[in-house]
Design a protein around this nucleic acid. Structure first.
Ligand SMILES: Nc1ccn([C@H]2C[C@H](O)[C@@H](COP(=O)(O)OP(=O)(O)OP(=O)(O)O)O2)c(=O)n1
Ligand SMILES: [Mg+2]
Length: 1087
DNA sequence: ATCCTCCCCTAC
DNA sequence: TAAGGTAGGGGAGGAT
């Protein structure tokens, strides 16, 4: 597809920085030619999309009895043209028209006040390409015509409204929309009820909107199951491990958790950039808990430039109209992810839900998380129950959840976005807002210079978006769509317009016209309730009609805040800024599913388990709270004991109560005991019957950073072990055998080295060692405590610096025990010890050095410690003057701490680079000023893209030791060199399995041979980390790729090579873990 | 006016 | 079988 090639040029030209995806480079020379093509194509983008696919938009049709054409055909027709088909008439409020050929007298009476039409209406309208007046086709029983009046209010859909400026998308797709604002299936303005897609409505009002939902009916499956005491004991809230199992399977839980994690990662990345820490290398060990690779914790992103710095004023206010905001969102994310391993299902109606197999599907209340665009043509949406969907499409196919994969794809996605964005707001696992004002500006400037073709900025913004899309597609195999505009609200509107698989830009001057046909709930933040208020109090819900209401009127109807937002939105205005750095304000744990208690003790136990869960979450982010809110869902007296939804809460009344949460000293707390007791007290105060409880939520507010955040608690973990063996994976039903990731080892990796293009600098990657990350992920054993500081490095510091550091540790009541590395705490992770304080010794930022000392860096740097670091204050061991270093923008202080080989690497790269514009990440002595223009980069030259030429690769054995027996790399130094040579030698080839085995054997022996001493393990871990560093350096992007290694003959791509290396890595890591588990009861953490 | 509590709403 | 979680904006109405 040419779009691909063209867009690639945006990222790969020397103008924007070569992409790390090697093959992009080959496009460079053809840049201009391609631009021509691109421009031509864009001219044609005005092509009208087949607007007829929205012909029946807003229609909700029930087909009565026998018809000609058949019901099946009519249903296809309806959904094909954007209408909604109702298999039942149980929700008359939803249905706009009844189609029929024959009516019994009873039916005639029943339908007297409804719009009853003949099938020809649909057929003829479809043929005409326009919706004909329905009354011309009104059904007349006998001779008599009962003329129902009313016309379909032409509520334009988002897509109709924008049809004429459609982007390059596949034209045949049905419209789509997010769950809360589904394509407007509601019909007329007077009586329409908005369908709600959920499987378990909590109020009668909601229930009335759910098609096929009868609130008074019990779920028979559930009744039967609940009648069995042993089943209850095992599968409801009284089961001992209910919470764990529940969360493991809850998509919404994962969604929420990922979002919070992503926000944290973004904040961390910003902090690093701002502190001059540029690229930081860290990575995840494995999800410490049974979570097993689902957590994003430990991942890291590298931000291209400091976002709107906290505190610092944003450099250019950037004329509001000049901002370029992109809303990037995967197309049917869960489905797309699932299709990666199921290419045969592409193009079919598919959904992701728990219920698998087509057996129980007919009556399944399983909720659909995501529907393919093909499925959407049938009217299937996120949130629907499977049974409901099956009625709409009997041939519907299902796929299971693959949470781990979603996480991986998301990290890859974010990594790419981070490389291009000036600022980024994480919206969801599959969705982000990015500010690319600076990038686009640069592109425009460069384009204007390099060719006198004066193309408009719009073209470049769109081209840039396509380039990003192409890159994400290449790395993830999934489509994202991108909406572009000068503010967030419009970018969101644009992205919906862009879907699927497209991009779309809204220009300021077009905004109002584009918005006019939209409905109020097409706007982010406006949903059902706002729409109802607008309808009731203002008489309309379309933006065009609301445009003449005064601001006061809107505020009156919707409240001051929302009214003003709407008033502006209608005019294309949105002042909201990207929120990339907002701190969390609450932490909660909600469970409103499967709650069924038979006695008070069970309820009490459950509450205390939930309290433990919240406490865990608080600890994991080093927070404590001063306020607790308990929220309860209690069965509505009118509702059946067993809700229609299997184990759901059904119709409920909700209650909440807040109370101060106070620890003994009057302090904030995260103590599970205290939280549990308070929550239980509050629950009891309601005096509810335990049998009626259907949902419980504990929420902690008034958060404070825990004091322990800067303290080191003593704990047990000495080595970077996981505290507990990775519980065995529950492999996804469809787990690929080749996918190592789904086996025991979570891909230890999370750090995808982002392609850092888009800047006027050639691609360089950070030398892993150089950016050892100081900030430890708040993870159980991974603490940047003093005790973990590499003493050899510490001691190698100049005296004054070391003393200052010691003093600082002491000051923080951290007991620096220079004799042992043992101390470290078990839980509450810590914060970078010197996060807030900047300590300076002789003009040197000590913090940075401290960071170099962090354990992660130690091992990331290289397996060998002392030998390499035995140099001190001097500029470096390598023969270079401090002056030259400074000239090269290398901070001598930091340079000094690097291992020799990296010093050399860095030096030669910097020398080779010697491009004036290049900023070196280490050069942050000076106030890093030009934030966007000079993103902190690292003077590490990245090898050119793989070439076709074959290089006889060295083998492990060649490298050093005699082959076979007694693997004696006694010197880690040797091992390091061997690995490096190995990886370097095979950069363009997958590793030999024999070498992998050999290496695995060596490492497992290291682990195994260590008994009382930890030296063996330490060595093994260090070596593995070094390997990891090398792999990241060369194949960073593929780290999270799924692992099927499809090395089809002859087809050796950089991707297949990368994947093969990662697979090898995981294989070895797994083997090491097996031994480690046996010996130490835990996995090895490579943090 | 401004806060606090108990909601409701929205989003993914 | 199924796994309807969560954080944050905000409004109504009472306490201050
Ligand atoms: N009610 C919902 C809505 C979403 N999701 C999950 C599954 C989706 O794949 C993912 C992203 O949500 P989107 O709203 O972005 O929907 P999709 O990505 O599936 O489709 P699209 O973005 O193309 O509209 O979140 C969910 O589990 N339940
Ligand atoms: Mg999406």
């Amino acid at each position: 597809m040419h779009a691909d090639a063209d867009s690639v040029s945006y990222l790969s030209s020397d103008t924007y920085g070569a992409s790390r995806f090697g093959e992009f480079g080959e496009y460079m020379t053809r840049k201009r030619a391609k631009l021509q093509i691109q421009n031509t194509e864009m001219d044609m983008e005005g092509n009208k999309q087949d607007a007829t696919t929205r012909l029946f938009h807003g229609l909700q049709i029930y087909i009565n009895g026998w018809t000609e054409p058949s019901v099946q055909d009519l249903r296809q027709l309806i959904v094909r043209y954007g209408g909604i088909y109702h298999p039942y008439l149980d929700k008359k409020g939803l249905v706009t028209h009844i189609v029929t050929c024959i009516l019994t007298p009873a039916k005639i009476r029943e339908f007297k006040h409804m719009k009853v039409v003949r099938p020809e209406w649909l057929v003829e309208s479809a043929r005409a390409g326009v919706l004909l007046p329905w009354h011309n086709f009104a059904f007349r029983p006998g001779e008599r015509v009962e003329q129902t009046q009313g016309r379909r209010s032409a509520r334009m859909s988002l897509f109709e409204g924008l049809a004429s400026q459609n982007s390059n998308k596949v034209a045949t797709s049905a419209p789509c929309s997010p769950p809360q604002t589904p394509t407007k299936e509601r019909g007329t303005e007077q009586s329409s009820i908005q369908p709600l897609y959920t499987t378990d409505p909590a109020t009668p009002e909601q229930a009335a909107r759910v098609s096929g939902y009868a609130a008074h009916k019990s779920n028979l499956h559930a009744e039967r199951a609940m009648a069995d005491p042993s089943w209850r004991a095992a599968h409801t809230s009284v089961a001992p491990d209910f919470i764990e199992g529940y969360y493991r399977n809850s998509r919404l839980h994962h969604l929420s958790t990922w979002k919070a994690e992503l926000r944290t990662l973004i904040i961390e990345a910003q902090e690093h950039v701002e502190s001059g820490q540029a690229a930081v290398w860290g990575h995840s060990g494995d999800g410490a808990k049974g979570e097993d690779g689902v957590s994003m914790r430990g991942a890291q992103f590298v931000m291209r430039s400091a976002g709107k710095g906290k505190g610092k004023a944003r450099e250019q206010p950037a004329d509001a109209e000049e901002r370029v905001i992109m809303h990037c969102d995967f197309d049917s994310f869960f489905v797309s992810a699932g299709l990666i391993d199921r290419p045969h299902l592409r193009g079919k109606p598919v959904v992701v839900c728990h219920s698998q197999g087509n057996q129980g599907g007919a009556s399944s209340t399983s909720e659909i998380a995501s529907a393919s665009y093909e499925a959407r043509k049938f009217g299937i949406r996120s949130g629907m129950s499977l049974q409901q969907a099956r009625k709409l499409c009997p041939t519907l196919l299902t796929m299971p959840y693959e949470f781990q994969r979603y996480k991986q794809l998301s990290l890859q996605f974010y990594t790419i976005l981070m490389a291009h964005a000036d600022d980024l707001q994480a919206v969801s696992v599959d969705e982000a807002l990015i500010d690319v004002t600076g990038s686009v500006k640069r592109i425009c400037a460069e384009m204007a210079r390099s060719q006198d073709l004066s193309t408009s900025p719009a073209d470049h913004a769109k081209g840039f978006a396509e380039a990003i899309r192409a890159q994400v597609r290449k790395v993830t195999g999934c489509e994202v769509s991108i909406g572009i505009a000068h503010n967030i609200m419009l970018a969101r509107v644009a992205s919906r317009k862009a879907k699927p698989a497209g991009s779309f830009r809204i220009l300021p001057q077009d905004a109002q016209a584009l918005l006019a046909p939209l409905d109020i709930d097409d706007l982010h933040g406006f949903g059902y309730s706002a729409r109802q208020k607008a309808l009731e109090r203002l008489g309309t819900t379309t933006l065009g009609e609301l445009a003449d209401r005064s601001k006061a009127m809107l505020c009156d109807a919707l409240g001051k805040g929302m009214g003003e937002i709407l008033y502006k939105a209608i005019r294309g205005i949105d002042d909201c800024k990207l929120e990339s750095d907002k701190p969390r304000k609450s932490v909660s744990c909600d469970i409103n599913y499967g709650i069924r208690f038979e006695n008070n003790a069970q309820a009490a136990t459950f509450v205390s388990q939930m309290a433990e869960e919240v406490a865990r979450r608080l600890d994991s982010i080093d927070m404590r709270g001063r306020s607790l809110t308990l929220k309860i869902m209690k069965r509505d007296p009118k509702a059946p004991v067993e809700a229609p939804k299997f184990m759901g809460h059904g119709l409920c009344e909700t209650f909440s109560k807040q109370a101060p949460l106070i620890a003994p000293g009057g302090h904030a707390t995260s103590d599970p005991q205290l939280i549990g007791e308070l929550a239980w007290r509050l629950l009891k105060s309601f005096n509810f019957d335990h049998k009626e409880l259907r949902g419980i939520s504990i929420q902690i507010q008034k958060l404070e950073k825990s004091a322990a955040a800067s303290t080191i608690e003593t704990g047990q973990a000495v080595l970077p072990f996981k505290s507990k063996a990775a519980t065995e994976l529950t492999p996804m039903p469809h787990a690929q055998s080749a996918n190592v990731d789904t086996k025991g080892d979570k891909a230890p990796a999370i750090v995808v080295q982002p392609p850092s293009q888009d800047d006027d600098i050639q691609i360089i990657e950070p030398p892993p060692a150089a950016q050892a990350k100081p900030v430890m992920k708040p993870e159980v054993f991974d603490l940047p405590s003093f005790s973990q500081v590499d003493l050899s490095i510490f001691q190698a510091l100049p005296d004054d610096v070391r003393q200052e550091l010691e003093g600082e540790y002491k000051r923080r009541s951290v007991t620096p025990d220079l004799r042992t590395e043992a101390a470290s705490r078990s839980r509450s992770p810590s914060i970078p010890i010197m996060r807030k304080t900047k300590i300076t010794v002789k003009g040197t930022n000590v913090r940075r050095i401290t960071q170099q000392l962090a354990p992660r860096s130690r091992s990331a740097i290289s397996p060998q410690k002392s030998s390499l670091f035995l140099r001190r204050a001097g500029p470096s061991v390598v023969n270079v003057s401090e002056k030259e270093l400074r000239k090269l923008n290398i901070d001598p202080e930091v340079f000094a701490v690097l291992p020799v080989d990296l010093q050399r690497e860095q030096l030669s790269a910097a020398r080779q680079l010697k491009r004036p514009g290049a900023t070196v990440y280490l050069s942050q002595r000076r106030p890093l000023k030009p934030r966007k223009l000079k993103p902190p980069l690292v003077p590490y030259y990245r090898a050119p893209p793989p070439r076709a030429k074959y290089i006889d690769p060295p083998t492990l054995k060649q490298q050093g030791k005699t082959k076979g027996e007694k693997l004696h790399f006694t010197e880690t130094d040797d091992v390091q060199r061997v690995i490096e040579a190995w990886v370097n030698g095979f950069k363009e080839h997958p590793p030999n399995q024999r070498d992998v085995d050999y290496f695995a054997k060596f490492l497992t022996q290291c682990v195994d041979s260590s008994r009382s001493t930890d030296t063996g393990v330490e060595k093994a871990v260090a070596v593995a980390k070094w390997w990891l560093v090398l792999l990241r350096r060369h194949f960073g992007v593929w780290e999270h790729a799924s692992c099927e290694i499809s090395v089809t003959e002859g087809q050796v791509t950089s991707e297949s090579v990368g994947r093969a290396w990662w697979a090898a890595f995981r294989e070895v890591k797994q083997k090491m873990d097996v031994v480690a588990r046996k010996k130490f009861g835990g996995c090895l953490s490579l943090r």
